[in-house]
């Protein structure tokens, strides 16, 4: 079977079984895969970029109303979640490194640590969403909304909370997808799929995970740290 393949493609058979026939060598295949992933991430940048752009326009229109919402955001949760995601990014980077060096045990442990902190992030986010619901600051699903503390901003502040729930919501969906990817990569790692010559899926999944981290790095100051120095409410 391997011989037929070699004749058909003109390739020698002494290469990695993971090398696809349309690539010259593993290096080129690796570079193509990371490049392709970056092209996908650029579409993701534009996806979140649209929301960040709309946020900027409305924040410029209603700066006081946006600042007033800070009374209902807990920046400690936000900062904690930033730290949690940065730790998960570190363990992800170390997982890729372990895969590159062929350290199977370290790879699996690092992937589990990454997933653990990813789940921590979502749990903390869940507690936050619950607090917003109790505070009646959820202008979605027909409106669980009360802003009687600053009635002059009752309408405009809804815009910020809609941005908040859509942006953090889409980010959380990306986290869930990332956890699914990490589970798959972990299963592959357990089967011993990866080696120093072939760890492309680990690298590419890592790119996705770091990207989701970067989105949060911007969401944290933009949603949690708007108006702490202004006491408008």
């Amino acid at each position: 079977m391997a011989d037929t393949h070699a004749v058909a493609t003109g390739h020698s058979t002494d290469h990695s079984p993971h090398l696809r026939h349309h690539f010259d060598d593993m290096d080129q295949q690796f570079d193509s895969a990371t490049f392709g992933m970056w092209v996908f991430l650029l579409t993701e940048i534009m996806f979140f970029g649209g929301m960040f752009g709309a946020y900027t326009v409305y924040r410029n229109m209603y700066p006081e109303a946006f600042a007033s919402t800070s009374a209902y955001m807990n920046p400690l949760y936000g900062a904690l979640n930033t730290a949690v995601l940065i730790v998960s990014s570190l363990s992800m980077a170390l997982a890729v490194r372990a895969a590159h060096l062929g350290q199977q045990k370290a790879l699996q442990i690092c992937l589990l640590i990454t997933m653990f902190f990813g789940i921590c992030f979502l749990v903390i986010k869940g507690f936050e969403y619950h607090e917003h619901w109790v505070d009646m600051k959820v202008p979605l699903f027909g409106g669980h909304w009360n802003y009687s503390e600053a009635p002059q901003f009752a309408h405009q502040a809804q815009i910020l909370f809609c941005f908040y729930f859509f942006m953090t919501g889409f980010h959380a969906v990306h986290m869930l997808v990332g956890l699914g990817i990490m589970t798959t990569i972990f299963m592959m790692a357990r089967k011993g799929t990866f080696s120093p010559t072939y760890y492309t899926p680990v690298e590419v999944s890592g790119l996705y995970w770091h990207f989701v981290d970067i989105v949060w790095i911007f969401l944290f100051p933009l949603l949690y740290l708007i108006g702490h120095t202004r006491h408008l409410v």
Partner: peptide
């Protein structure tokens, strides 16, 4: 994060350009 964790530092010039 991009330069070190995402390895753009060692990526090909084409990838750098796209980023």
């Amino acid at each position: 994060v991009i330069w070190f964790f995402m390895h753009v530092r060692t990526d090909s010039p084409l990838t750098k350009l796209f980023v």
